[in-house]
Simulated scan of single mutants.
Amino acid sequence: MKSSTTLLITCSTVFLAQLGMSIYLPALLEIARNLSADSSQVAWGLAVYLIGMALPMLFWGSLGQRIGRKPVLIAALGIYGLGNLALPLGTTLESFLVLRLIQGIGASGISVMARVLIRDSFSGDQLAKALSWLSISFVVALGIGQYLGSIIQVALGWPAIFHLLGGVSLSMAVVVARIAFASRTEQVIPSSSWASYWQTLNHRDFLLPALAGGLGYGVIIAFNTAAPLILQGPFKWSPVEYGLLGWPISTAYFLGALVVNSLVLRAGGHRLMKIGVSLVLAGSAVMLVASVTAISVALLFWLPYCFAVFGQSLNYPISLSLANDGAPVGGAYAMALSGFMHQLMAAAIGAIASLIASQQAWPLSLLCTLLALGAMICVMLSRVTPRS
């Protein structure tokens, strides 16, 4: 019963944290007009959010190990909720970016504690299955969040997007305060948190799967950063039309997560991860070819991306599970470190995507292809059987 409750709560909180990445994207151009800023400058809000998610992750992991998972999760939800409520009050680009950073800091704690709570309740192959549900929450937030944001923008205006997100986050903190979570006996660990992180980072069986997951994640981040300018630029999509793209994206990720749930015990994690990364690479490569030879056909830009998303939905939960199984140190450290790596990589990739963002699709497609190629190299170099 506790495991089911933990899964429900963690999926809900991850959904809220990841909404911060996608729900405002259809309103990006309107926010830019409101702040009297260029849309490419406002697009930096995603990179700043990811920086906020990345930087404190190791701190959140250490804090959760010392004082417990629940109080840290409540604090993170509070920071995230208040940051959302405050964001519409800003009137300058600088205030927008600062509050996006605060949002990201809160989302960082939510993400770390959700994964650690899942790890406390599940192990082995069941851990990969449970993490696939977190992946579903992640992509539903990315996909459906776009559509939800577009509807709220049209009906109530863009500030309502952040008001709603902030109110729900604070309500979730109240719910979490009333839940009793499962605990897990930890193995002996080094005396210093930083020693634990360093020992884990230097372990091949942790590092390679974690890098494969992070590079595939970067494909999604890059697309979310630059795609609004492309699809609402030369393709002249409206905010609602861009929001509707969230449905096929979410469907692709949902189907992939179901495949992990159904087949990981029979097919093996490493095999499924290799298939997933191959699909990410193939989808990105088709995007690149299409953007060079048929830029006027929007279908040849977003449909291959959906195949890449399907592949990443296979790759990501398995990469987290294999990295955790391969880590030499127990406790919250492996999950916190993998989250830190992924968000730091995502922040860097988001920044690169912001710098190359234009109304041409080929720079984004090239970046996605290179990221997928890097993920494939990591998978090929990793061991077939994770270290137990």
Rank of each mutant, 00 (worst) to 15 (best):
V139F: 14
G145Y: 13
S135C: 08
S135L: 10
I151C: 06
A141W: 04
A130V: 05
W133P: 00
L170W: 03
R184D: 13
W133D: 00
E186I: 05
A180C: 03
V188T: 08
L170R: 01
S171M: 14
S132T: 11
W158G: 00
R178W: 11
A128T: 14
A180K: 09
L170E: 06
G166P: 08
W133R: 13
P190R: 13
M172R: 07
W158N: 00
L165P: 00
V174R: 01
Q153K: 00
T185N: 01
S150I: 11
A128C: 09
I189A: 15
L164C: 10
G167I: 04
S183Y: 00
R178T: 15
L164E: 02
S132Q: 06
G145F: 09
L170D: 07
A155N: 03
V139G: 07
Y147N: 02
I179G: 05
V168N: 05
Q146G: 15
Q146N: 14
I151Q: 15
S169R: 01
Q153A: 11
R178A: 13
F181N: 02
S169C: 08
K129R: 15
V140Y: 07
V176P: 10
T185W: 05
I151F: 10
L142H: 08
A182V: 14
F162Y: 04
L156D: 04
S183I: 07
W158L: 07
S171P: 02
S137T: 04
V154Y: 11
L156G: 01
S169N: 06
P190N: 04
Q146F: 07
I151Y: 09
L131T: 12
F162E: 06
S169V: 14
V188D: 15
D125T: 11
I179P: 13
S171W: 06
A141L: 07
V176D: 12
M172P: 06
S135T: 15
F181C: 06
R178E: 13
M172F: 12
S171N: 01
V175G: 06
A155I: 02
I136S: 07
S183N: 10
A128I: 05
G149N: 06
R178L: 12
V175Q: 09
S183C: 04
A128N: 03
F162I: 02
A155C: 05
Y147E: 14
V188Y: 02
R184E: 14
L127Q: 09
Y147S: 05
M172N: 03
L148P: 05
S137V: 13
G167T: 11
I136T: 15
L170M: 07
Q146R: 15
S137W: 05
Q153T: 04
L142K: 03
A130S: 15
G143Y: 09
A173P: 14
A177F: 02
D125V: 12
Q187V: 10
I152H: 04
Q126F: 01
S183G: 02
V168Q: 08
V139C: 04
L164S: 03
L170P: 00
I144V: 15
P159C: 05
L134H: 04
V140Q: 08
A180Y: 01
L164M: 11
G149F: 02
G167H: 03
Q187M: 08
M172A: 14
A160W: 13
L170H: 03
I161A: 05
G166D: 09
M172I: 13
S135P: 02
S169D: 13
A155F: 01
W133C: 08
V139M: 15
L134R: 02
L165W: 06
A141S: 14
S183V: 13
V175Y: 06
A160M: 14
Q146A: 07
P159F: 00
S171V: 14
H163T: 12
I144T: 12
